[in-house]
Design a protein around this nucleic acid. Sequence first.
RNA 1: GCGCCUGUGGCUCAACGGAUAGAGCACUAGCCUCCGAAGCUGGUGGUGCAGGUUCAAUUCCUGCCAGGCGCACCA
Length: 546
Amino acid sequence: MHDNIQEKLIALVNLCLEDLGWLKECKDGVLLDFPTDNRFGDFTTNIALKLSKLLKRAPQSIAAELVASLQKEIIKSNLSDLISQVKVEGVGFVNFYLNDSYFHARLREIITCGKEALRLDLGKGKKTLIEFVSANPTGCLSVAHARQAAVGDCFASILSFLNFDISREYYLNDEGNQINILGNSVALRLKELQGEKIDFPENYYQGDYIYDIARKADEAKIKNTELGDFAADSILKIIKDELKDFGVNFDFWYSQKELAKSGKVEWAFKQLKEQGYLYEQDGALWFKSTAFGDDKDRVIVKSDGSQTYLAPDIAYHQDKFNRGFSWLINLWGPDHHGYINRIKASIEAFGHKSDDLSVIIVQLATIFRDGKPLQMSTRRGQYITLREVLDEVGKDAARFFFLMRRTSSHLDFDLEVAKKQSAENPVYYVQYAHARICSILRSSPAALTDSDLNLSVLKEKEELDLIKKMLQFKVVLNICLITCDPYMVTVYLQELSETFHKFYDLHRVLGQEEQVTCARLALIKGAKIVLAAGLELLGITQPEKM
RNA sequence: GCGCCUGUGGCUCAACGGAUAGAGCACUAGCCUCCGAAGCUGGUGGUGCAGGUUCAAUUCCUGCCAGGCGCACCA
């Protein structure tokens, strides 16, 4: 069942190149791709263009010679039932055209096996940990966190689909300065509620939610020294609810407080010291990150004896490996990009490869309301929260929106526009295609079954285009893996939907000759399977009706 | 000053280094006695600037211009 057509064709090309005595010139190997446009066949290779300079010959003449050889070889190796033709096109591309029966077989596979037919075992069960969001429990999640949540969750789903053994983790910054400030903020608001006049510092958390927590703390009679933890716990509950409603579920909530208690930080220090990567200077303890390409060495214990943020972070990342994960993925905001080198340095100091950690920088979403950008400040409590976005545009549209731009690109998000145009949001275009298929399937006579299904009646261009587009699903997932970016799925689903809508517009499914109706029903069932699989990866519902 | 991200029609965005740079919105001309018109078809309109590498550059490299974000013994 394994679809190894691509390997088969590459082997064929290599065989012919060998015969022609050109194989040794092809240093980078033969690239066999899906052409940008299916006018140019089903597979294409640019090998003649590559060889042109080395052989000092015109690419078309090289291609022509190669094609002649390929045509002979195709007949010799009985591949003519698979390949309908191979020819030179354009400036010297060699394009392969497959027989329709190949696509019919692939479609049959999809409707028989369902989404299992779309899987690729690229992960081989590799234990992978993706850490994302990890917002401090000092306030609600912002839109920036929301984008990270959508990207991280979707990428994790894709990796899982590709047979990586993936776990989702949230690193909980539940101790330190910001928790102290949080506790002090609550304490002050409590005094204020009790009628005292207070002077609320600018660097304290300004949001109204601090009042709510203060009231709750008062009721629960929380001691002053425990206000910080109490507040963090309360906020964490809110965060968990927000994420749940956004459809994001974490396997692990990793507590920095627990890490500090565990002795793992000291253990990490000891290891680094033994390797000679720590030294003291100016009363502080430094990590020699320059040994691994960082711009400067980094302080991990300040001269006042307290640790910098880097200290637990080094131990944390090492602990990820110690827990058995061999690939770490971190999603960070752009403000953390300077942090990449020092963390990578730390894992290298422990003998891991730099590539064992992939850091994905998720660019910010700039929030607009009525065309005006909003200033964001956690402390002031003036920012658009994930909750607000969910309430305003809904989970499906929000997730799709956050995922439809390249992760490394800025995202403009005007809430008013998103609300106003919600009916025109691309997510509805895709969901509409799914619902439309369901509607046809509902209207189809029950008597028509898949038995004696003859897919060979699918000969129309739009029918074959739809199958070919469905087959690109795997290619897209592969690109997502290579680029560490799930956004391509949203682009693909729009294209798949478009291909379906075009088919729908030109050809009727129901009321045709029985064989044709059956085959087309199978075709749209296949399209439904792929659409649903894609939407599921995005964490978006697959409505049967809209 | 250094680092990262981004410059593509009026607007928001696509395009593994490939073939005629694609969509949506907006503007505009059409398509429902027929499976969902939240759809389809046509039209107008575009790669910031200057070099370089390449058979081939929106894509890679250098410089410039413009915008965003970072450059702590903060977290």
